[in-house]
Simulated assay, not measured.
Amino acid sequence: MSRSKALFAGLMAGLIAGIAMTTVMLLLACFGVATPLAIIGDRLSVFIPPGPFLALMGKVGDYNHLKQFGVGSTMAGQLVVGALGGAMFGLLMRRDPARRVTGVTIAVFVLLPIIALTIALWPVLGTSYVGFPIPVGRVVTLLGFALSVFVFERVLVGGFHFVARPNVAGEAGEFSPAIGRRALIVGGLGLVVAGGGIALLRKL
């Protein structure tokens, strides 16, 4: 598989996986589960001195607008990181895109993010919007995040294999109509999931 095709397939799969992961987080938030979309901003806010924090809040309007800005920034960051992660995955898989590397992808895209999140956000992991005690809140938050990154990993791998699989007739055309149709299907599914995520966001 050429570098450009692998990059394209991975980038698209990563972006769609990022959208799916974000939608899962929004769905969990509807049930009162704390997700990185909200608690990353809470964690970072403690490192901002009161003066600059109040000035920033004044620029965006009030605390609610600042919170919305933080959530939106986190969502955008997740999509960018997801797309970049997908691109790297595509480049690493280009020599043999059909091979299965489930153990590696679970370790890199599920276990590693869970460990990183636990270390970075430990002080706010116990956040609960339904009144759970802090220890229980931590478990619920981590389980929700584990589900989210697992969805990311599965959508990334599945989407990449779907877009990048060889044509039945052979490898004559790198960007044949068949590849284009697959990319269009994956993109369409991504738009549907994104629409669901936007609907959930409006309910929060």
Rank of each mutant, 00 (worst) to 15 (best):
P52V: 12
Y63Q: 09
L84D: 08
I115L: 14
V33L: 07
F150E: 05
Y129H: 02
R95Y: 04
R100I: 03
I198N: 08
F8D: 10
L84H: 02
D96E: 15
G188S: 12
V104G: 12
V124P: 06
L15I: 00
V60S: 03
A76Q: 05
G103Q: 11
F53G: 05
F47E: 10
V168K: 10
P97T: 05
A146Q: 02
L15E: 03
F31V: 03
H161N: 12
S4K: 15
G72W: 04
P123I: 09
R181L: 10
G103W: 08
N64E: 10
M57Q: 13
G32V: 14
M25I: 03
I198H: 10
S176R: 12
L15P: 02
V108L: 15
T35H: 02
F152A: 07
R181Y: 01
I106Y: 05
L201G: 01
I115T: 05
S128A: 12
E174H: 10
D96M: 15
K67A: 04
L26G: 00
V168I: 09
V168Q: 07
P113F: 03
L121V: 06
K203Q: 14
V104R: 15
A183D: 04
E171L: 10
L27R: 02
I40D: 04
R3N: 14
P166T: 01
K203W: 03
A194S: 05
V124L: 11
S4E: 15
F69G: 01
A146L: 10
A34E: 06
G158S: 13
S148N: 14
L184V: 08
R94Y: 00
I179Q: 02
V60W: 03
A178D: 11
V136S: 08
F160M: 11
G190M: 06
R165P: 03
L79C: 14
L7A: 14
I119R: 11
L112Y: 05
I16F: 03
V151C: 13
L143V: 14
P52C: 04
A199I: 13
G188F: 05
P123W: 09
P49S: 08
V186Q: 04
L37H: 06
D96N: 15
G85W: 00
D42H: 13
G77A: 06
Q78M: 01
A199V: 12
L26N: 06
M75R: 03
S2A: 12
A107Y: 05
K67T: 08
R95K: 15
A178L: 01
F152L: 14
G187T: 00
T23D: 01
F145Y: 06
P49Q: 01
T127P: 02
G103H: 11
A194M: 11
G137D: 11
I115C: 11
R100N: 09
R182Q: 06
D42G: 08
G131Q: 09
